[in-house]
Nucleic acid binder design. Sequence first.
DNA 1: ACGTCCCGCCAGGGG
DNA 2: CCCCTGGCGGGACGT
Length: 780
Amino acid sequence: KQAATSQLVLTERQLDCQPLTTPPKPKETPPADPWTPTSNLKMLISAASPEIRSREQRRQLSDSSSEALQTKHCLQEHLLGDEYEKSQPSRKEKSLGLLCHKFLARYPDYPSPSQKSYICLDEVTEELHVERRRIYDIVNVLESLHMVSRLARNRYVWHGRHNLPQTLQALKKVGEENKYIQQIQMIKRREYEHEFDADGERNEEMASSFGSSEQSEMSFVELPGVEFRAASVNGRKYKSLRVMSQKFVMLFLVSTPQIVSLEVAAKILIGEDQLEDLDKSKFKTKIRRLYDIANVLSSLKLIKKVHVTEERGRKPAFKWTGPEVLPNTQESIPSKEQCSKALFPSKGKQNFTRHSSLIKLVKSIENDRRKIQSAPTSPVKITASTYQSLPVFPNTIAQFPAITKHQLEGQSKTAEEMHVKRALSSPEAVPKADASQQPALSQPLGVCPASHSSVSPVILPHPQSGVSYAICLHPSQAHTVTTYSPGFMLQPLPCANVTGMKSNNPKVLNKITTEEGDAQRGPDEPTKSLAAEERPEMKSETSSQRCLKRSQALPENNLIKRRKSDEESLDTSLTFFPSGYLIPLTHCTHGNKAECSNKEKSGVCSLQHTAYSSPITGVIPMPASELKTVNIPAFHITPLNIMLSPNSIAAAPVLSNSCLNSSSTTSAPNPSSSALNFMLQHIGLIPAGVQVAANPVLQHVPVSSQSANINHSSGSTNVQEGKPSVPKEPQEPQAVTENFFRTPGGPNTEPSLSANSDGAQRTSQGTLYIPQRKLEVSED
DNA sequence: ACGTCCCGCCAGGGG
DNA sequence: CCCCTGGCGGGACGT
């Protein structure tokens, strides 16, 4: 064991030494030494563990601990004499997880909004004694959770866990929309089959696998005030880890026993990116990344490692130990007082809204609308499944206007912009009555015409949580290269024109829709839930409504000027959205001191609401550089519960004028709204049957889902917590059947008829029989 | 032998 | 052009 002594320092970074090999660890730790660096480290760490440390102390503690560590090392060295300093004890001490702990220890879980803490990579790497590369790993996943956001090179802002609830909620939502549950089922089924023999029919599986996988991705879920900064930087490819991280988390949030095996996760993630088959190496790499992610998630205590034992053997897996994500309800939303920083702060310079192209857009849209009015636009129910079944996404659908980069760039903003804004957000524009009478979720919904760009953002309200977000599509996986046209949302095409649409049997679609659970019911169904849900919604939304009104009453100018104070770093406003992002809008950010701390009435809130009502909200500026072709990952944009209120529509710049006058009535959607509906549905942005109407009430009753107890399962999946002794979570049965077939909506949804309880399960494709298997999950 | 995953090369791209 | 970012995967370490 001690052998290595000879090599050392020199060996360390010798180029001639096989560069491709991991440097052997200089082990010099005296085996017999009672005191081991490891143990010491562990103690320190445990001391600094999140559970124990309190916010304030945290910082100091960590510092002290790290220092102590240093000291120890020095000490050790001295004691050991001229031993090599790199006594770096075993690999474990260098683990990402540990490093992450140290990293996290430096910042409070819930930093006070007033004082932002910034993260300087250089400092961190230095203080933590790590290679920069490692920090990126950590930061990237933290970013995916919106716990940090990048400001600039070497610079990040620490948000702590404030955003976690919203993030998780959004992720869960997206996860549901992505039908991860089905995908998981599919994968498992595939495995099962695979068991029988060599990969016989595997291929067909893939193909038939309701397109579940592939094609969806590269979308990142974002929260409004949080990260735009990075957007410019991360315009594209360099998103992998972050996106992976989010998806990984989604898997947990969506699956019923919240346990996800690495294998499955890897497959899903791979599948999504490319339906390439199980490329061995690719799979391996994916797994590796997953470990990285898992390590930091573990450090965050969001998951913990467990083992799933199946027939096949033990498979590494992770169990969600983070907060339960409530399907909806207002709780998750930060207190009303905490108004988010304005989405579109002062720095309006590159404000997309200002762009003259917008105006053009509006005009053209109106024209189009006119043209379309006569066209048959009755909403056709289209669900994600529909799309998934479609081999190719119809080009026709998405045609956005091309706003050339050139256009985006230089232009005079100002008067024009102001006009637009006013027009869009002024009280007149939005019927007051509506605003006040439909307090519930009126999230702004804006469809951003994205030109040829790679990003086709769409801002969507999150029905349940009130968290709305936008989706930016990423071009990378576009099969069909499509182009957006300004009329995208507003100009529905006749059904006939839509490729493949007719081929689908409406009934089937409906059926599927129902099964989807969650948001996909027909319009008629939600009724009952409404009552239950309405109240809470109202409550939660009230303040915002107020603010909204207020803001509407206020001159826009103020909004824009106000917090110029926050450094530019706050200039989240117009930063470009990265491609492939999902951006929740409702979310309230903290961090802006002045903002609306506790005084709702101060009117400060109005600022925030600007975001809601501001025309800009719906528009996402695109970096010229990203202007490319747009692809619409149909699968990815699965149905979302989208409720639009007239206000919302009004808020969307693009939709503005044309929609304003018409959309006030809930009952009968006018041409424009129907058109909008059509488009949304068609694209899969909203579930079939859901109408983008003024009535925000179409919500589903939030049901607190206690995942655990679902023993009803049939199988013999066995989940074993490693620590057998103490069943920490009483509600969690030791043995839980892996519920492969849960309906997405979970408790939230009426169980589909055949979905639970027996072996016969339906997938969106039809009925599938999925054999049950025994699983055993054990903690490490 | 296998699960875990550190290490660091190196491409890309921002400044 | 430099250097920050971060994809990527060999192969070391742990068990």
